[in-house]
Design a protein around this nucleic acid. Structure first.
Lengths: 342, 342
DNA sequence: CTGAAAGCGCTTACAG
DNA sequence: CTGAAAGCGCTTACAG
């Protein structure tokens, strides 16, 4: 009863059946008589036998694996992934496991052909793409993916003629809620920190929401209150310095990501401004840091878990041929101390 | 020149060579004439051909994949992984990629036989285990892994007769440095928050370092200044409440993890104690939150990147048969505001 | 309900 | 330097 690296043949021999029957029994085929099946499964368990994935995959041309590509604009191998995406990872893994899929991770610039290779080499049945980035630049990459018949789903906005499936958050709505809330607190001169470039449609949409809220309140847009900032460390800090240097008065900041917002709060404090007394701050994403900084950051939460599950269902749907709609999730304002409402 | 899902046979046909030669050429075998090799590789590139991993893996009995198991004591599917381990993930992935390995992730309780399955099914060539946990409980799990000839390396302390390879941090040294630093600031009544159970040797070692520093300074241990706390949300907060309820005076806290320390700081503030004026606080791990809370947390840093690389080299060494020593890394005190030294 | 057989796409001795 | 051949361990029509 001791076999080193048992194969289905070994099980077959011990069970006194053919190897084919073993294969069927282990896959719970109804073609096998119940008692035979149980006998075989018991032997397999006793021998610590597990189906060889390479052999099964070669035969079926499937890997039951999803490749998760975390990409980032930021250069350098030391770059930290936005924690928002990192926390999605856990939920993605669990959701995938629930559907019988393994998750292979990779952190890459979206510049190599790496992503195509993954499916072409049968390592993964499909791809999930995660990252805030330059969608104009990605467009050709995504097209290449589509041309290679690679199945993928991407976290982000639905873009016209962008290939592939996507799950996103209603960023306009989120930006609107954030700004509206600041207006409700009586703030009138609300600065906007973050990219407004159409190249980053998710962030730009948050800006659109901001504009919409101001417009609705009859407040004019002030260009001087808008400062570009990327979502990496130090950017929010720099943006506040720029803002202060301009000398344009402001009583609130809406930062398009928490990473920017948290940095901005430090800059404000370092320069003698109290948050929220002098300047109210609202961010976006609700990364775990947000609840822990002082003052705790009011922000717009995207439901990470729901997003992760939608992504996994999306890609598994593509893989298994059950159509899945691209969808948009509704974000929710999380009120904490930094906006002055508490 | 259009083939749907090209195989090495297709390439062979186009190149006018045998399939065997294609296989050799693609693996850069010196057996193939240089010009033949290049011709073949060009065709492969043009066709977007990639070696089928399942077939190659079946043949060679390797997957060139490492499975990364993030386990956690905390119950419930909503449980968040300690950010310390999450940030290791990025470095592990990059280090593995550098050595030609993919990384498969899984979040599990270390209670299933999942981990054995991974190697037995040829999905992974080896395992990296990551998590703070109950080593007594794990011992049997690790033994089962070893019995099944599963190659694994674990982040943690070297434990006598614990099977497998491990990379760890010199936790005694870290605990000593933290406590010593508090003593240097003139603090005398230093509370200890965290597990001292031998079941969590890493955390217990930090406690050992604490004891050592106190002993060296001629200060007696006060049992009442020690409160058990797990490394999950709310535990540090509760621990401070317990401490306050005891009425034992204290002027500093050494928390065995940052997660506990950050929670503790909030509890102190909520109860009218200023950090560091009334109570100095030092944590352990240097999670990214640590630098962002107010006051910024003084802590003991484990070099995540170095750790990740050591883990990857460890497991790859085991896989490829080049012996790798288990090793201990030296942690470093990172002085910020919470200890009162700035 | 079960078995014999083919074949998934590679890698690598073996022979030349 | 190259080719013919075997075989890795499965799954699944096909036949009974």
């Amino acid at each position: 009863m001791k076999v080193e690296n048992p194969t289905s043949r070994d099980i077959a021999e011990l069970a006194g059946v053919s190897q084919a029957t073993v294969s069927r029994a282990l896959r719970n085929s109804p073609l096998v008589r119940a008692d035979t099946r149980e006998r075989i499964q018991k032997i397999a368990r006793d021998l610590n036998y597990f189906v060889n994935r390479n052999a099964a995959g070669l035969r079926t041309q499937q890997s039951n694996t999803i490749a998760l590509l975390l990409f980032d604009e930021t250069e350098g191998e030391d770059a930290q992934i936005n924690p928002f995406f990192l926390s999605m990872l856990g939920y993605i893994t669990r959701a995938a496991a629930g559907l019988g899929y393994d998750v292979l991770i990779s952190m890459q610039q979206l510049t190599d052909d790496w992503h195509i290779e993954y499916q072409a080499s049968n390592r993964a049945d499909g791809l999930i793409l995660l990252g805030y980035g330059d969608y104009v630049k990605y467009h050709e990459k995504l097209s290449a993916l589509a041309r290679a018949n690679t199945r993928f789903t991407i976290w982000g906005p639905r873009i016209d003629d962008q290939p592939g499936h996507s799950i996103g958050c209603d960023n306009v709505d989120g930006g609107y809620k954030a700004t509206r809330h600041l207006l409700d607190q009586g703030r009138k001169r609300i600065a906007l920190l973050g990219s407004t470039s159409r190249r980053s449609p998710e962030l730009a949409s948050r800006y659109d929401g901001y504009c919409k809220a101001l417009h609705e309140a009859g407040i004019e847009l002030v260009d001087n209150l808008r400062v570009d900032a990327m979502s990496s460390e130090g950017e929010g800090y720099r943006a506040v310095l720029t803002l202060l240097a301009r000398g344009e008065a402001f009583d609130a900041i809406f930062a398009v990501t928490d990473v920017i917002a948290i940095d901005a709060m430090r800059a404000l404090e370092d320069n003698g401004y109290a948050v929220p007394a002098d300047v109210a701050v609202v961010g976006f994403d609700d990364i775990s840091l947000a609840g822990h900084v002082t003052p705790a950051l009011t922000t717009v939460r995207q439901d990470i878990r729901q997003a992760a599950e939608a992504l996994v269902h999306g890609i598994v749907g593509l893989i298994e041929g059950t159509p899945v709609e691209s969808s948009l999730m509704v974000p929710r304002l999380v009120v904490r101390a930094s906006c002055g409402a508490l």
